[in-house]
Amino acid sequence: MKNKKILKLLGALFAFTLLATACGSSSTDSAGESDGGSDGGSAEASTGLSVAVVAPSASDDVAFTQSMIDSLGRLGVSPQVTDGTFVVEEAAAAIRGFAEDGTDVVVAHGTQYGGSLEEIAPDFPETSFIWGTATDNRGLDNVFAYNPAADQGGYVMGLIAGNIVGGEDIGVVGPVEAGDAVAYINGFALGAEAAGSSTSIVYTGSFSDVALATTTAQAHVDNGVSALTGTSQSAVGAVNIASANELPWFGTQSNTEPWSEDFTVVSQVYHWDVVLAEMFALIEDGTLGGQAFELTLENEGLVLEYNDAFELDADVRAAADEAVAGIISGDIATQ
């Protein structure tokens, strides 16, 4: 076992050697992470629909894109995936390509793809496009929009964080000040405030710059924050700082336990499957779009996944559960 590891390591070291020798070692690698991708043919969903996903970051980013791939997996759908398309025009080409191939459902998993979708969707009236995060479908009949009410989970997590740190400051590392990141962070700040704690918020201006997110989190720590949170795939940098300084970490989008087994307190996980199931049902009945869906605590599209390894006070947990109930009943405003 150990020998194999060293072999693989040498392969990485000697990049060119890898080219010649990796046939053997990489066969195990590629089998391990096929992303559920099909071998060229269109994947059959349990719904009978063929589904494709175009997403800006990697399928296994422990953040935004992974939340969608995991959700489709829970529905038994193994989609065709084009990931890492942060260039909007490339994404547009991929979306158009899937539509041309006759894919039933194309998921455009990125707010920034909306502008392109407005041009593409009318050209393929038989195809259903699912686009998010977006609060409305821009008046297109074959587009479903989806959006997480990230402020709801954010509020509860802010409340938990505030109660844990007892009035001290909490550092927030945001990416670009847009989309669900803003909703999450604003909700989190309100929740922390409700628990008598303050938040220090910095948007780095990038979804992907891990180095910047790391440095920002370090600056928060040096300023004396007692807990950290952050969102987007760049948040992994901030998680490392939280772990290194043994500070509680609050994750969102996907469950961030793979990033920090010990210090992730709770993650707000997007269960898109709740709304996707509804959309697939509508599509099978012939409605290809025209509606907007929202993930909320109430419809269980937003799930707070607590980390068992982090011991949370019963009082704090009770207050959190109470807040969830309050948000569902409408007694607590999170925006």
């Binding site: 260039v87 909007v88 547009a92 502008g115 041009e119």
Partner: peptide, 18 residues
């Protein structure tokens, strides 16, 4: 000449220029 006929940034340059 873009599909979306607008300028959009993701914080870096490659997202726009490829």
């Amino acid at each position: 000449g873009s599909e979306s006929l607008r300028l959009v940034t993701d914080g870096g340059s490659a997202g726009f220029t490829g």
